[in-house]
Structures are given as structure tokens and as C-alpha cells.
Write a protein that binds this DNA or RNA. Structure first.
Lengths: 219, 219
DNA sequence: AATATAATTTAGACAAATCTAAATAATATT
DNA sequence: AATATTATTTAGATTTGTCTAAATTATATT
């Protein structure tokens, strides 16, 4: 799929605006890209033709799976270049956006993967925004309970929010340390407790207080 | 002067092909850019309008001073990116051209000057081609006699090709060492000898053998 | 000098990405 | 429900960079 710079910018804007919403409006995209709604309609037809968006007249726009995949690539390129500019070329984080806006359109997978490696495979950019990996996955770092609503998924312990010895003692007793892999078996809404399992051990349940203080990332 | 990518590519090709020639042909440019002569004629009119080339129907094309200035900027960007790709991202020198071809069109003086600094202000790229500085000047490193044909110019000694003690002794006796600034006063074609002068000393003449072994750069 | 060949330009067309102005559809308000 | 407002689309035009085919100019050859 060979996209023009204009097409890439539309994909990126739609991705940015979609976030949660089912569908993005013509007007919103026009405003975001500083262009006119009529131009957005024109481009929507082309992107639909290329199967990168779902679009029916007057019904709004949303990315297809393939469109989203491409959007994540563009976001990855943008954020890695921002890292490079700040960490290697000593730019300040508030002046890198425009330059990264241009660099992100240089298309070479090899280039971007080498760049990522050169930067130590960072997972967030200088603004704190997460950087998707080559497969488009975010390595999310967050509290078990608050954000990761999925059940039956494997997570890796990445840190603790509360450094109190009481918590550390508890985690130690349960065999939970940095890097430990945890399978989430069930979440109970009535008290926000979570049933988890560590490899080769029987499952057990942790309270909301505990789950709110363990930072994990997805694998 | 805000140029499109296409305009920059034309400028770059004309610069490359001009080298010595008074004028470049429509056909040569078309071949170089893998396009048609008719397209070159169209673009020639635009670039003439912008005063970047001298062009009269059927008379060939040449860069104006401003056009050359811009060409040197593009060459600088291209070669610095090649350095980056090879030295920092471990690409091999034969696979960087295409990527640099894209990166060179990202226009930010600050970016390119920071990149140059980051790379240690290199003066040649991985293919051995010289990199112009921010002012468009080459820091040429070469044998006195072979390439630098200009008379009455100041040069700086940058090294010796022949490490024999005989040569080093001679240079020492004449007060010529690394960094010494030399004014070339006259070149004599019949024996390729060169009359030179070092600050505060009487002028003297060096033979072809000697001049062929002193590496200098322009200031 | 006449003619053949090669180089260059012109004329007219096309695709991409945009625009303005007018038309149409969806939504909100009375 | 009728009307006003807002959102969206269509139609037609523009700019940039390109193309093909035909016309023109320059150069080489006899």
C-alpha cells in the first residue's frame, strides 16, 4: 500500500480524532487538518476505495483494521523521531513537533526499526505519549484495576506505585516481583478485587488497594 | 524561497550534471531524473521564473548563484543523512542513498546543523564525497598540485601522503607543519612546481614531488 | 547547401489535492 | 410539523507535475 503524504496525514488525523468515538465527522477532520470539509469528502472517497476507512455519505468516517495498522505506523515514526530530536540533537520537547511531522513521512521500515534500536526502543516520546512497537502494539504501563479491563490476559509486573514496606512484604509473600508474569483470571465488580494466577501456583485474589498499586504492562 | 520536492530534485540534478560544463541539456536532466524532456522544459520555465536557473530556449540550463546555493544545501542534507545512517544506524554505505533521498527534503536549518554537530561535523560522507558546510563551502582535502588549480589562494596543511623521514625533514626545515597556512603565489606549468609563501617569511618554491605529497584544505 | 537525425519545445491532456459556491441532508428549535 | 441552522456533498475550477504526440530548431552528414 503506497500512500501519499496527504493520505497519511488524513489517516493520522482520523486515528487521533477517533479515540473512543465510533465515527469522526467531516468537519472535525477539516478543522484538524486546517482544510475545507469539501476536501475531506473528496479524500474520504479515495481512502474508502483503498479500504482504509469505512465511509457512507453523511454517516461519518472510521478507520478499518488496515487503516488503523497504518495509523499506528505513522504514530510510531512520529514519536521515534521526536525522541531522536530531543535525546540526540538536544531539541526541547516543545519545538520538535513540526520537524517530526515531516520526518514521519519517510517510509522505510528498516530505517525506523534501526532508529528505535538506536534510541534503546523507547516506549514513550518526550511528551509522555506511548510509542507503538513494530507490530503496532503499545507497551502500556498502568494500574491493574484502573485501565486494563480485559480478563484472561497475561501481564508483567513493571513497578509499584506505593513503596510502603507493608505492600512490598505482601508482594514478597505472594512471590510477586518486578518482571513476574501474571494471568488475570477474573475481575469482581462488587469490590474491584481481582483473581490472578502466577505460573505453577494456585490462583489467589488481591484486593482493590493492592491492585491499584501494582504497575503492569501488557506483553 | 520555498521549494517543492520536485523543484529541489531538479536543482540537485542540474548541480550534479553541471560540474565543469557551462550548461546542461534538457535530455541529460530528463535521463537523470527518469522523466521526459518535455517535463524538463516545463520545469525550466518555473525555475527561471524563480531566478534559480539561467535558461533560454534551446540554449541549455545552468544554475544561478542562488540556485547553486540551494543545490549545496540539498547536497549537504543528503550527505549528512548518509553519514547518520551509516555511522549511527549501522547501514552499509551502499543501501543509504534512497533513504537519504527522502530525508534530504526535510527542510529545517536547525535540524541539519544540529545533525552535523551530532556527527562531529564530518567533511566527507560514507562514499567519500565531500560535505559542504552551512555556508556551502567545501573543506577540500587534496594534493596541492593535482586538484587545486587556483592561484593566489590561502590553504591550510592537513596532512602528508608520504610519511618518509626525508619529506618530513624537508617540511620541518621549511617550517611547514599541520595547520600551517600557506599562500599559493604562482604555479609553473613546465615542471609543475609551485611558489608558496608562509606568513612573515620570504616566498620559496616546492617541486612537484613535494607538492604531490602535501594534503591541504581550503579555508 | 540540402537533407537526415537528434534535441527541444509546444499544445493539449491527465491525476492529485485542493478550493469556492451552490445544493442537499441531518439536526435543532420553535 | 414546519422552519431554521448546521453539516455534508456535489459541481466546477485551479495548481503542480507529469505525460504523449506533433511541431520546431539545432546539429551532423552527405
Amino acid at each position: 500500500m503506497n500512500l501519499t503524504v496527504a493520505e497519511e496525514n488524513y489517516i493520522k488525523s482520523i486515528y487521533k480524532l477517533q479515540d473512543g468515538q465510533a465515527v469522526v465527522s467531516t468537519n472535525a477532520i477539516a478543522y484538524e487538518l486546517d482544510t475545507k470539509p469539501a476536501s475531506v469528502t473528496d479524500m474520504a472517497k479515495k481512502l474508502k476505495e483503498k479500504k482504509l476507512i469505512d465511509y457512507e455519505k453523511y454517516q461519518g468516517i472510521s478507520l478499518t483494521a488496515e487503516g488503523k495498522r497504518i495509523a499506528l505506523q505513522i504514530v510510531r515514526r512520529h514519536r521515534l523521531w521526536e525522541c531522536f530530536l530531543v535525546e540526540k540533537l538536544s531539541f526541547s520537547w516543545n519545538e520538535v513537533h513540526e520537524i517530526a511531522e515531516e520526518l514521519e513521512h519517510v517510509r522505510s521500515e528498516k530505517l525506523i526499526n534501526r532508529l528505535s534500536e538506536f534510541l534503546g526502543n523507547p516506549t514513550t516520546d518526550p511528551h509522555g505519549d506511548p510509542i507503538p512497537d513494530a507490530q503496532g502494539k503499545f507497551s502500556k504501563t498502568k494500574q491493574l484495576i484502573s485501565l486494563d479491563k480485559a480478563t484472561a490476559r497475561r501481564l508483567e509486573v513493571a513497578g509499584v506505585a506505593d513503596q510502603s514496606s507493608a505492600l512490598l512484604e505482601f508482594l514478597n509473600a505472594k512471590g510477586i516481583r518486578l518482571g513476574t508474569q501474571i494471568d488475570v483470571i477474573e475481575r469482581y465488580e462488587f469490590d474491584n478485587s481481582v483473581e490472578i494466577k502466577i505460573r505453577n501456583q494456585p490462583a489467589f485474589t488481591i484486593s482493590e488497594q493492592v491492585s491499584k498499586n501494582i504497575m503492569v504492562k501488557t506483553l
